[in-house]
Design a protein around this nucleic acid. Structure first.
Lengths: 341, 341
DNA sequence: ATGAAAGCGCTAACAT
DNA sequence: ATGTTAGCGCTTTCAT
């Protein structure tokens, strides 16, 4: 069933049928009714490929993200896929997923595949896609030569590249300040990947310590493994080492929850003896015990803004190339209240 | 830059260029080299829309799933998106996501959109997409009239419909039997949505109880809310009611972990006073304390099988229309060991 | 308001 | 081994 069949069946030209399908004004009500009736009866749907060929778009967006099944990946970002899909669909775009393992193998190939697929734009989810070695970001700049590229919590300067940034610096700054305000002093900062995002968080921690006249010691800035078991051992080794701490600020909820598990198994009182702030406001932060005080990076807003910018850009409206979304502290039960001893 | 440009630039016909692009044998090595060189130099990539129009496929699969950002949804299924995307890509298919809120609003529309998009097949992830009222499944049967439909843990008879089933019955049967074997007797069965999948789990629980000559009481088969807070209150109300239980079998890890949190806050010893088995082997089961004994539904195998069948079907090879994947018990720290008192 | 016809860029049947 | 040409099913320009 093609537009020609509909044309023949309803006794009008294909042009008119096309007009009806696309809701053009310039069709008499009578003709429109007639054509619509035939279309309905015959169950005809326009061929999307032919439309795509003519219009040179099928309204699809390529989403580059980490594999939601990869247990080593940062779980903060999985919901972003959902937010993006929802917002894009609201604007009549389809989302094609390109999932990468956490090692980022094949980033360049995937970008190429998107362009071959002729996506209208590319969204890259996560700061780890932006590497410190500029050479490894060249493929992104190249892709931006063909279609606009939108980065969710990624920072990269370039023509046709739009950055939606999470205020990572302030996240850790808030978390650290919160602990300090409840008289916690020996605060551990735990990172896992040292991605660009985590580097900014580290800076926030350092700034908060300094602003409160507390010494910043490299002993208190540590790498914690991602794996649950390994991170347990990490906390054991910290104890063996004799490091004293009464507060922890992490880059991910997973790390914070691991700390909680260790504390629980050792009978360390939370938050009285040890206060913990996570990051992500992930499902883990609600299901752990005690419930975790954490930073909500507001990924939903990040995604909504990204799609807004994308739509505006594709419609030809100029859009700002950069937006920073503020994060907020979610106070739960792993930190003391102000004034609590 | 089109195939005609390449044709002109390399002095051969478009057919030959097309042959080179598609790796046909019937091209002399010399010609192939020449054309490839021109293609490379010009940075030409074939127009996917034109190909799609000619071949009537763009090798895309529509995936209907619950929104990964929906906190009310079953988190067991989020990794499935990743598994499917990975397997499909290995077979050169792109995945288009169609995410639904947990209320399933718009299922029918989404299926229609997929067909309009001319996907090559549809994969539906989750048993809740199959409803008990056959009228609500008609849209799936209709869709199967156009393209093959693959259900991940969904059971629906129909032409061109393929079912990959998780052995839900046996999951709960195993979980319940495990508890009984460690002398746990008063076992609570907790469901949340009573989807088809959960109904089968309930049957498994009942069968295990009966097979071990234990009475099955409706008092011990309960609905537990999904929300963390509400489920905490649910356990409180159970205590007020005076219901005695020393074991819990759940349909989801979330429910099990909520039970753990309640027990922890009330000083109930796990597993000595209360044994718990979850379902899903989700990230929660590893990050909770104590680590949760749970059922791994083997969703990865489910997804791999689904894509295998899909590929075989689309290649014209006959494929079985149904596969049941066995689940397995992951023993961790919320259940006693056999012989432990 | 309606229609004829020229693209869009590829693949494949057929011819050489 | 290579080329000619007719589709694939739409949109759009230009007439009328």
């Amino acid at each position: 069933m093609t537009i020609y069949d509909i044309s023949r069946l309803s006794g009008v030209s294909v042009t008119t049928v096309s007009r009806v399908i696309n809701g053009s004004e310039k069709v008499s009500e009578k003709t429109r009714k007639k054509v619509l009736k035939i279309i309905k009866e015959s169950g005809y749907t326009p061929n999307a490929f032919a439309r795509g060929l003519g219009l040179n778009t099928m309204r699809t967006i390529g989403i580059l993200c980490v594999d939601p099944a990869d247990t080593n990946s940062c779980i903060n970002l999985t919901p972003a896929i959902g937010y993006l899909e929802r917002e894009l669909r609201r604007n009549n775009y389809d989302s094609i997923l390109y999932c990468l393992e956490y090692n980022m193998q094949g980033k360049e190939d995937y970008l190429k595949m998107m362009l071959e697929r002729r996506v209208d734009a590319i969204i890259i989810v996560g700061s780890f896609f932006i590497e410190s070695n500029p050479k490894n970001n060249q493929c992104i700049l190249d892709a931006a030569g063909s279609v606009p590229v939108f980065l969710i919590n990624g920072n990269l300067e370039g023509e046709n590249i739009y950055c939606m940034l999470c205020d990572d610096f302030n996240s850790s700054y808030m978390a650290t300040s919160e602990l300090i305000s409840t008289n916690v002093r020996d605060i551990l900062f735990l990172y896992t990947t040292l991605s660009e995002s985590e580097k900014r968080k580290m800076d926030g921690y350092i700034a908060a310590m300094k602003d409160h006249d507390l010494a910043v010691s490299q002993d208190y800035i540590r790498h914690c493994p991602q794996d649950v078991r390994e991170s347990y051992r990490f906390f054991e080794s910290l104890a063996e080492e004799g490091l004293k701490y009464d507060g922890i600020v992490t880059c991910e909820d997973t790390t914070a929850v691991s700390a909680l598990k260790y504390a629980l198994s050792k009978g360390i009182a939370i938050p009285e003896q040890l206060s913990v702030v996570g990051c992500g406001n992930t499902i883990l932060s609600q299901y752990c015990y005690p419930e975790l005080t954490t930073i909500d990076g507001n990924y939903e807003s990040l995604c909504v803004s990204a799609v807004n910018m994308l739509v505006r850009h594709l419609e030809g409206t100029p859009a700002p190339s950069r937006a920073v979304i503020s994060s907020r502290l979610i106070r739960r039960n792993t930190t003391k209240f102000y004034g609590m001893e």
